[in-house]
Amino acid sequence: MVTPDLTTSVAGIDFKNPILTASGTFGYGLEFTDFLDLNRLGGLVTKGLSAKPRKGNPPARVVETPAGMLNAIGLQNIGVPVFLEEKLPKLRAYDTKVIANVFGATEVAYVEACEMLGEAEGVAGIELNVSCPNTEEGGMIFGTDPAALGHVIRICREATKLPLIVKLSPNVTDIQLMARCARDAGADAISLVNTFVGMAIDVERRRPVLANVCGGLSGPAIRPLAVWMTWQVHQAVEIPIIGIGGIMNARDVVEFLLAGASAVQVGTASFVTPSASANIVTELEDWLSERKITSVRELIGGLELPPRG
């Protein structure tokens, strides 16, 4: 049996396989070394980083909902400088692509974070989070207003030479419009989706379960929505797409690839099973072998539509 070729390329970054981990669900990577070999991963995306550290929202911050979970962490993070000083040197020891996920409260703060990352050795690219639903100034405005989105991408584009992946918010009416906007402003690739805004109520106490009132929905519950948005964006723009949303196994990965994604990110699954991302790499290899598919790239955008009758 021939080993299938898992390599893929997004935004000029060559990944050994299409499995990355999603921001906020994989810490800074190093927390997972008890559970998996980081060298197995195509790449890892850091927790959202801002120029300065952030404390985040009051608890309760997470709750399970049907086939998913709501979170309102509020982008608590160690800040870019501490990441560069304490985490990145250790991550350099691994043969995997490190993508820094970045956000800011203002345009200036986005630029500041991008500049700080500069051309730091070991950072393969920047993923701009313009779509966090959980903080008043967490970038949601940038993710839902086309003009604001275009502008923040343009100034970040000028601030860094690193490949720029723009992570879109699904909380919009027209995802194709946002994708075109991102492309026109200079995004090298698009990742989607971030979480959907949702709410859970404790009916006995008549109060929201999360202290933040609303939170971001992730997990298998959002997968069909995310696959649909991937397909729509695939039809709207030619830049590569990283698909995200409720991926639990190799079959789910293939779904995103067929819808047009060139790579994927595994999120909530890493909470359920810490080794999930690496397990999925193995599973994907087997899935392809069993079907005698020689390269994962054959699947990208390979959806076949039934003839209309």
Partner: peptide, 24 residues
């Protein structure tokens, strides 16, 4: 606390504590 991961990565399970600088 409500927990999603249990091993430190989701940052979901926090409680307010007195920090070194006196802030929460």
């Amino acid at each position: 606390a409500h927990m999603a991961c249990g091993f430190g990565v989701c940052i979901g399970c926090v409680v307010p504590t007195h920090g070194e600088d006196g802030a929460v």
